[in-house]
């Protein structure tokens, strides 16, 4: 095992973590501001990926596809907020789970009707194909771009929340929704904007990841569940917690899958070591979650401490 390979895997972990952050940020915002658990967040990720792949295939331009994915996800988010989600804010979590579970069924089958039953493929844009020399290792230029984009979006999101008028309203909404409504902020519109913002982030993640995975129905839910793990680790409602949790989950998951089979190969025969290593690696982040729960039941950065 060379150092170059190790660094490459580490970068993969960071890239995975940043994409998870895009998913988790929206989820945690929606929970923090509206108190809503949204299972259909994974469907918005899927919608972003599908519209991106379809638009990129139609126009031959990846960036147009990316815009299409982003806009489609944000529009779908706004639409379901106005039609369904809005009725759920005052309901208990069970109703929210069920209604958004129903939305998963509707959106998954809807996408299947619209785009057909087969996976779509999305190629990275020509200028981002190939590798870049990082001195110690060659690394995929596209994945490196994802890392840069992920960091840029994270900074943008931080600036939005910490520095703008909308950000002030969002933070105020987290603390006391009656009070900011009384101060004349249109809370309904604010909720729609926050939901669409989270949807856009999920759609962006789906579209970006679509170029390194196949774009298919059901792609969103595994990521959604990982995003839940991220939020539980980071603390619900905290953007900073989502960032730390996402990077932890991304790096530990990737490194576990890379290192554990090699570790078991030192004393088991290779095929057995692969199986045992892979099985245990897939459990690693959940063990991390359990550990955080025991030590910090509210997550690493509880938002409403």
């Amino acid at each position: 095992m060379s150092l170059a390979l190790l660094i490459e895997q580490l970068l993969n972990g960071v890239q995975f973590g940043l994409m998870l952050f895009l998913m988790s940020a929206g989820l945690t915002l929606v929970f923090g501001v509206m108190g809503l658990i949204n299972l259909a967040h994974g469907s918005l990720y899927m919608i972003g990926a599908f519209f991106c792949a379809a638009a990129a295939a139609a126009t031959g331009n990846f960036w147009l596809g990316l815009m299409a994915g982003l806009i489609a996800a944000a529009a779908a988010g706004a639409l379901i907020e106005v039609t369904v989600i809005r009725r759920l804010y005052n309901r208990d979590h069970l109703d929210q789970v069920l209604a958004t579970f129903a939305l998963i069924l509707i959106l998954s089958e809807g996408v299947r009707m619209l785009f057909g039953p087969f996976p779509l493929y999305l190629d990275a844009p020509a200028i981002l194909r190939g590798t870049v020399d990082l001195g110690i290792t060659q690394y995929s230029l596209y994945r490196l771009t994802l890392i840069v984009l992920g960091v840029a979006v994270a900074i943008g999101l931080w600036a939005l929340i910490a520095r703008t008028r909308l950000g002030i309203q969002i933070r105020a909404g987290e603390n006391d929704r009656e009070m900011i409504a009384a101060l004349g902020v249109n809370i309904r519109a604010l909720y729609t904007v926050v939901f669409a913002l989270g949807a856009a982030l999920a759609g962006l993640a789906g579209a970006l990841v679509g170029a390194i995975q196949s774009v298919q129905v059901g792609m969103g839910e595994p990521v959604l569940i990982l995003a839940f793990v991220v939020i539980v680790i980071g603390g619900i409602g905290s953007i900073k917690g989502a960032m730390v949790g996402a990077l932890l989950v991304g790096v530990i998951d990737t490194m576990g899958r890379f290192l554990l089979p090699r570790f078991f190969a030192t004393f088991l025969d290779p095929s057995q070591a692969m199986g045992v290593g892979a099985a245990l690696a897939s459990m690693l982040i959940y063990v991390l979650m359990a550990l955080v729960l025991v030590l910090r039941p509210k997550g690493l950065f509880p938002a409403h401490a």
Binding site: V97, F228, V229, I231, I236, G275, A278, A279, V287, P297
Partner: peptide, 29 residues
């Protein structure tokens, strides 16, 4: 583990633990 929490946390954690065993069953040869 999960009953240390409640509400939305509980939903996510029970889901996550189930997913953990799902992936274990998936990859255990």
């Amino acid at each position: 583990l999960s009953l240390r929490t409640s509400g939305i946390f509980f939903i996510m954690i029970t889901l996550a633990f189930a997913q953990m065993f799902f992936y274990f069953a998936l990859s255990w040869p």
